[in-house]
Design a protein around this nucleic acid. Sequence first.
DNA 1: ATACTAAGGTGTACTTAGTGT
DNA 2: ACACTAAGTACACCTTAGTAT
Lengths: 101, 101
Amino acid sequence: MRGYSQGDLGARAGIDEASASARISQYETGKHLPHFDIACRLAGALEVPPAFFYSTDDETAALLLGWDAAEPAKRQIALKLLKVDANLERMKTNTRRRRRR
Amino acid sequence: MRGYSQGDLGARAGIDEASASARISQYETGKHLPHFDIACRLAGALEVPPAFFYSTDDETAALLLGWDAAEPAKRQIALKLLKVDANLERMKTNTRRRRRR
DNA sequence: ATACTAAGGTGTACTTAGTGT
DNA sequence: ACACTAAGTACACCTTAGTAT
């Protein structure tokens, strides 16, 4: 199993092969959205962070890909670089995380 | 409208006030997941990037908050810092973006 | 083989009404 | 006022069967 067909991707994500092609086609054509747990498994199969699928602009998408590929040391530097502003911002806003299934 | 009640948040996200409290409560308690377009409007109201709601670890969540608060100049530095690894990584993997509604 | 779609079945979010703080 | 929940309704995803490249 080394291909990149919809069926193979489905298999790597643990989706029943009988419906994998149809479902992934529906996702790619925008007909339907996968549930979050399925998106996580597809992200695992494609080796991208799940949040990548939910980025609404190309810069954020690039950030998440770079973040995912970077080594821990480089991650720390990037995070510290951004963190100063973030902490200032968070004092002003009430941003509670919402739970997932 | 200056409060942080569920009803106010719903109003800022353009959700019908008759059901805003119930729905947001269901999101916060993990009973239900909002559709992606609703998540985007909630993110706008809370001034966080939509992808923040879909981050599966605290570091990625922090990254996205920092990214959102950072000025363009600082964003470019962070992005370039991560981009080298990212480009190398993308040559090896087949990561097609999936469409959204 | 693979990608895609229509239509019906299935499951989840949304609405409403109501309880409790 | 506000947060939360139960139950029914509405709607989106999933499955199947089928077409087409």
